[in-house]
Simulated assay, not measured.
Amino acid sequence: MKIAYSPCPNDTFVFHALAHGLVPGAPELDVTFADIDITNRLATSEEGLDVMKISFAALPWVLSDYALIPCGGALGRGCGPLVLRAGGSDDGAAALSGRRVAVPSERSTAYLLFRLWAAQNVPGGVGEIVVMPFHEIMPAVRDGLIDAGLVIHEARFTYPSYGLSLVTDLGSWWESDTGLPIPLGAIIARRGLDREAIAGWIRQSVEYAWAHPEASRDYVQRHAQEMSPEVTQAHIDLYVNEFTADLGADGYAAVEALLGRAAREGLVPSIDPAALR
């Protein structure tokens, strides 16, 4: 089974058992490690794989060919994307008016949340949007190559070391506005494959990871892009949670709320919520 997920600690932690033949009855995996912007594009091309980790924000473009798997993804509370800028200015959202902002993908949940937040909070709107790999964003902001950056994942723990300041926490904004968790990364499988079987294998892989955290440690750290073990563990603790094992009612409600609001704003195509299940 051909699968693509990121080298980030939450994904390698979740898929370690499945990728190493530790889930009974599961097929052998052919793993491609890819940034979320790459998998978002792969899912809309003929090169799309059997199973992929993409942004929930990209779902409206792929649901005709792929089904949402109700486990293995990334949702949560207190784990949202951050908007950062250099220095310690307290101008807040106004500081982004007409500015160049780097984002990790134009079809990422982070970018969708940013667009929804900016429409309400940035006078006159932001200026140019520049897409770059997420690990390049903080250095670019620090070095003055970009005015502000939208960051995800472990940047939540490391941005002060780049001399950057927080403009807003989009997760906190979303949670206070909706009362729902933030839907970040989704697992999808090509339609025609056995969705229930794939979900079962992934869920067993998650449960194995929780039961045997030491088993995946070398695999996770090897792909963690020079993250310290402490940051790696904090990343896993934040992004691998109850919603990773099962989306549940709150998870589905969060996805429907995000995509429904974005569709009303003209940011994504409208979808039938029934297509998510």
Rank of each mutant, 00 (worst) to 15 (best):
P24D: 03
R41A: 13
G98I: 06
H20G: 10
G78Q: 04
V51H: 07
E47N: 14
M138V: 01
K2M: 04
P104S: 06
A95C: 13
S108W: 11
V83D: 05
D37S: 12
A93W: 07
P123H: 02
D91I: 07
S97L: 01
L49N: 10
G78K: 11
L84I: 11
V62Y: 03
N10E: 15
F15S: 07
A140F: 03
P104T: 04
D35H: 10
A102D: 02
A43Y: 03
L29G: 02
N10S: 15
D30K: 14
M132R: 10
R115A: 11
I54T: 12
A19D: 10
V130W: 01
D91R: 15
C79Q: 12
A74S: 14
T109I: 00
G87W: 01
K53Q: 15
L82C: 03
E106V: 14
S45D: 03
V131M: 11
R41K: 10
L84V: 13
T44F: 07
A102E: 03
C79M: 14
V101Y: 03
R99S: 08
L59S: 09
V103K: 06
L18S: 12
G21Y: 08
R100F: 00
I137T: 05
H16Q: 06
P70V: 02
A26S: 15
E46D: 15
I36N: 06
P139W: 05
T39H: 03
F33R: 14
D50F: 04
G98A: 06
A57R: 02
N10R: 14
G48H: 06
G73N: 06
D50E: 13
R85P: 14
N10H: 14
S97I: 09
P70D: 03
E136K: 14
F134H: 15
L68E: 04
S55Q: 00
P9D: 09
G88L: 11
P104W: 00
L63W: 02
G127T: 05
P104V: 01
A26T: 11
L49I: 08
V31Y: 04
G76W: 05
A118W: 01
A58F: 05
T39Y: 00
D90T: 15
A74N: 09
A102C: 09
V51D: 09
P27H: 07
P123Q: 02
C8I: 12
M132C: 08
S97W: 04
L22I: 13
H135M: 10
L84N: 05
P9F: 05
L82S: 06
I36H: 00
G76H: 08
V131D: 04
A110H: 01
V101Q: 08
S6Q: 00
E106D: 13
E128Y: 00
P133T: 08
K53W: 12
F15N: 09
E106H: 10
N121I: 00
D90L: 15
S6Y: 04
A102S: 09
P104D: 05
I137G: 04
D91Q: 13
A57F: 03
